[in-house]
């Protein structure tokens, strides 16, 4: 009999109305189940990591929550009707490579219906440390800078939640640090909720308050890093190592 894990929605049931709530989400691609009965919710200022091996269903879940894909079963409830208050940062940078960084941001702020797109573009360029690359074509930017532009586009229109699909997979350690410092700042200052997928337990433990672990499309854990170690871990030499072992115990089970 399959072990029933508490869902993220169960874990996070108390508190204010969630910004974003996915309930009983399933997705099938023909006969293949990519996601089965997953529930998750995000509140203002949250930092949640979505963990799982390749093919676990992380991207599928993020795409459904972002409104890019529709679930086969289940529903997504957002605080606002429009999906615009949810920022989306896909794994592959979604930018026009022949437009400059400034033109990319300006276009998407206009599409978001921002009152003063020029001012918001200038602010986003500043906040993402892209001002000095503003007038370079996006195709000429380095991988790290391009990813920052990708994130900046996700933030166009001042969303209250940001969904990021493996945002640090192609970044160097210093670029990863800079990106998270900046996202933490937004989270603390503006109450931005962040849900990101990663394959690194270390990154999840470092930058997220909670983590949701998926395996074969099913949710197998939801809680904090400490709870992961307590419930599924074996004694290790360090907290990170213990969490890593707990994660492996779960996904190998």
């Amino acid at each position: 009999m399959r072990r029933m894990a508490p869902t993220d929605a169960d874990v996070h049931a108390q508190g204010a109305t969630p910004l974003l709530r996915g309930a009983g989400l399933s997705k099938r691609f023909r006969s293949v189940a990519a996601l089965e009965d997953v529930s998750i919710q995000l509140e203002r200022g949250d930092a949640v990591a979505l963990l799982g091996p390749n093919g676990a269903g992380k991207t599928t879940l993020l795409r459904i929550l972002a409104g890019v894909s529709t679930p086969t079963q289940g529903a997504v409830n957002r605080e606002e009707r429009s999906v615009s208050h949810i920022g989306w940062v896909p794994h592959e940078p979604a930018v026009y490579r022949r437009l400059t960084a400034r033109e990319n941001i300006l276009l998407f702020t206009r599409l978001e219906g921002v009152d003063s797109p020029e001012a918001e573009t200038a602010e986003l360029l500043e906040r993402t440390d892209l001002a000095r690359f503003a007038d370079r074509p996006a195709g000429d930017l380095s991988t790290g800078t391009l990813q920052r532009l990708n994130v900046a586009l996700g933030l166009a229109g001042r969303p209250s939640a940001l969904l990021l699909d493996e945002p640090t997979a192609t970044l160097s350690p210093d670029q990863v640090n800079r990106l998270w410092r900046w996202l933490d700042e937004l989270r603390v200052r503006d109450g931005l909720a962040v849900l990101f997928s990663t394959q690194s337990v270390d990154e999840a433990g470092r930058y997220a308050e909670r983590m949701v672990i998926l395996n074969h499309g099913r949710q197998v854990f939801a809680g904090t890093a400490d709870e992961l170690v307590t419930r599924h871990g074996t004694p290790g030499t360090s907290a990170t190592d213990a969490a890593e072992r707990a994660f492996l115990n779960l996904v190998d089970a």
Partner: peptide
């Protein structure tokens, strides 16, 4: 191909 369709389709256009 530029992956921008996923952004545009999210209610922007």
């Amino acid at each position: 191909e530029e992956n921008t369709l996923v952004r545009l389709r999210r209610g922007l256009v």
